[in-house]
Design a protein around this nucleic acid. Sequence first.
RNA 1: GCCGUAUUAGCUUAGUUGGUGGAGCGGCGGACUGUUAAUCCGCAGGUCGCAGGUUCGAGUCCUGCAUACGGCGCCA
Length: 443
Amino acid sequence: MAKTLWISDVLSGSCTGDSVELKGWVKRHRSSGKIVFMTLRDSTGEIQCVAKKADLEDLDFDSIKNALIESSVILKGKVKADERAPGGHELLITKVTIIGEVNAEKPFPITESAMEDTEGGETEFLLDNRHLYLRTGRMTTMLKIRSSIFGSIHSYFRNRDFIEYQAPSFVAGAVEGGSTLFEVPYFGRKAYLTQSWQLYAEAAMPALERLYTIAPSFRAEKSRTRRHLTEFWHAEMEIAWGGNDEVMAHGEALVRHIAKNLLDERSDELESIGRDLNLISRYADSKYPRIRYDEAVETLQGMGVEIEWGQDLDYSKEKVLTKDYDVPHFLTHYPKIAKPFYHRPDPEDDKYVLCHDLLAPEGYGEIIGGGERTWSEKEILQRIDEEGTPREPYEFYIDIRRYGGVPHGGFGMGVERVCSWLSGADHIREVIPFPRDSRRVTP
RNA sequence: GCCGUAUUAGCUUAGUUGGUGGAGCGGCGGACUGUUAAUCCGCAGGUCGCAGGUUCGAGUCCUGCAUACGGCGCCA
């Protein structure tokens, strides 16, 4: 039963003239009485198959003529090069085996009309039928792009002697603000789903020195935007003996590595969804500029945008700011009052912290947040007290500083945000198989 | 939490100043030996989101509710 021949093999021309067996699903289908044209798809592509009544037994002819969309079939036949076939090759069918029938009373619900571009992304119907929508061309392409990006993250870090390291998903305390924690019952106590690997990564930093992960993070944000999910995949790294600049250099190199690999591995897929490859080349080859928070605020004020020093830069301001950039850029040195305690104050001016965000162009916004950590015991206690944060839940975190603290830092990258940006998706939901947001946990 | 928009057949939708809800796709039946989202003929399929109200009469006007989608704050 194992499958050894894929549609992409046939389309490449390597078996033209051969008698072959193809396994796949019926994508489309048109018949003219004594001839049937059907499009067979598998994970690698689609090919036109032709059944002529004279070439096969009546039973086989009828079964392929009546096979509904998404029926699974095994077709035997001869591969022929033919200019009239989309893709240049077709299969002349001689034998048909229907493996999984589709019932006419409940035909495949995802029709062309259901996938017509309705304003601003996917309809409720497609979201409800996500389990079936996955097998359509656009979703299949997105999943391949996503896989390439995950692979690139692993190869970037592993090629540089980073150790992959896992943190728990059940945690007792917050990384970000407490309001965005998912609370789960835990044998009579309360636990939370993790928002970030970071605090646990810092614990392993003295052991491994260079570490990374790709894992889900959970944020109970009610945000309904094209860049938010409640469950997203988080690529995070942490390095010992490094500061903000080193971490930023890794962030830039990682993103460029992802863009370059994506061009190498998935150019066809990018083009099939209408993505301009020149943009991806530019992201792969350019340096990413770095600007300080103060400069950004001045620029915005110069443009007449209402913003006061100390205020965080929200999405609308990011958009104004990134309008004139055609590559990602870093925003650094935010005011201390806008950031949590684990960001290290700048020794040259402690109004600021040593941090950075990487903002993607084309209006996609923040894809990376990172920086240097507050690494001495004295400084971390001071920062926690300044913020009015209770010490107790962070005792283990403070301990790390009590036993040979060293300068260190890291970043977190929203993998779906990167996928969404590089693929040019309208909505972050398009790049994850089963998206989770504040209103949807099904299917 | 806030603001906005929508809800008509399995899907995408039309529906005028209130007067017996139309179409395309998909499905079923038929014709057709080179189609490209094939074409042509026919058939089935609707508590117009739910509950009230106004009216001789409501898909259409009003009120409430539900659900969804879009956006904001926050963030990756």
